[in-house]
Computed example of a mutant assay.
Amino acid sequence: MKILVTELMWDDGIEELRKLGYTVDYDMELGRKREELLKLLPEYDALIVRNETRVDTEFLDAAKNTRVIGRLGVGLDNIDLEAAKERDIPVIAAKNANATSVAEYVMAAMLDASRPLSDADADVRQGNWDRKFFTGYELNKRTLGLVGMGEISHRVAKRARAFGMDVVGYDPFVAPFDHILAETGVRPADTLDELLQQSDFVSVHVPLTKATKHMLNKDNFPLMKSHAYVINSARGGIVHEEDLIDAVKSKQIAGAYLDVLEKEPVQKDAPLAQVESIRLSPHIAGLTDEAQSRTAMLIAQEVDRVLNGGKSICAVV
C-alpha cells in the first residue's frame, strides 16, 4: 500500500511506516503545489498532511482510493471534516503529542516579556550597562488568563502555578469538576470580558471556528490592563491583527506574542512586522524535536492501525 506525505514529517515516523511495509512518497512542499497534488492523490491509500494542505471537497474527490487521512498536529481548520465523513474517510489527529511543547512556548513568552534577556544581551554588546532598564518583574503573583481550557491549557496552568502565578480560565464547555478546574487550581471566569479584565497575560487555546474568529478585537482590548500581553499559539484569525496593532500602538496593552497569523508566512513589510512590541515566531510552538517525533510516530502507528482494519483512538471523524 502507498502513503503520501505532503508536508514536513520527522524522519522516524516515515521510517516507521517503511518498516511496516508501506511505500512512502514524501515531498514536504507538495501541500503548496495544488495542481500536482490533485493529480497524484488517486494513487494513494493514505495521506498525511499538516496545516498548509487544503483538504476540501475537490481534494477528497480526487483522493478516490484514500482510506485514511493523518494530520500531523491537532488543528483541523484546513480539513473539511463533514466532507470526509460523507465519504467515510477517517481523519486522525496527533492528540496531545505536542501539548507540552506548546505549554513551554507560552511559559517562554511570559518569561521573555518579564525578563527580556535577548534585548539585554544586545544592549550590553553595544557597550551599555543599563541595569535599571532591564530590571524586569516576577511572574510570581501575576495572573494568567487561559482562553479555552483543553489539554494544552491544563499543561500551561500546571507550569504557571509552579511559578506562583494565579490562573484564571474561560471556556463555556468546561464543567465545574473537569480536571483543569478540580485538580489544577484554575479559577473559572464567567465571561471572556471578566478574564481579560483580570489577566496580566492572556493565552489563547481554542480552535479557529466561526465563533472564535476575531474573538479578541477592538471591542475587548480596552478591557485589558495596560501592561498586559496577548499570547496566541493556537490559530491565526482568533486575534484581530489590525485591532491588535492599534491596541499596542495606543498603549491599551503592552504587546503580544504571535506564533500564528492569518496569513503565513508574514511579509517583511507587513504592518505586524513593524511593531516592536508584537513579537512574531514562525508557527513553531509545537515544533520541538521531541514533539515532532511523538507526532510523527503517533500518526504513523494510527494510520497503520486504520489501514489494517482497526479504529484509531485519535480519530476526529
Rank of each mutant, 00 (worst) to 15 (best):
R125H: 13
S203P: 13
H227M: 15
R115Q: 09
R142P: 12
D190Y: 02
A315P: 15
V168T: 12
P282Y: 06
R34E: 06
I89W: 08
Q267C: 13
R115C: 13
I313G: 14
V5D: 07
I253P: 10
L30M: 10
E36F: 14
S250V: 06
D27G: 14
R131S: 15
A109L: 05
T184R: 14
Y229S: 03
A120K: 11
N78P: 04
E264N: 07
D304L: 08
L117R: 14
M1S: 02
R235F: 12
A46T: 06
V248G: 01
P222W: 05
S312R: 09
E7W: 00
E16R: 15
K249Q: 05
K19F: 03
S226Q: 08
V91R: 10
I253L: 02
A108Q: 07
D171P: 02
S281M: 15
V202L: 03
D80V: 02
G21F: 05
L298N: 09
V156I: 14
V91A: 12
E183D: 12
M149C: 03
Q267P: 13
G21T: 10
D130M: 05
D243Y: 00
Q126K: 14
F201L: 14
M215C: 00
A273S: 12
V204A: 03
V24L: 07
A270E: 04
D61K: 01
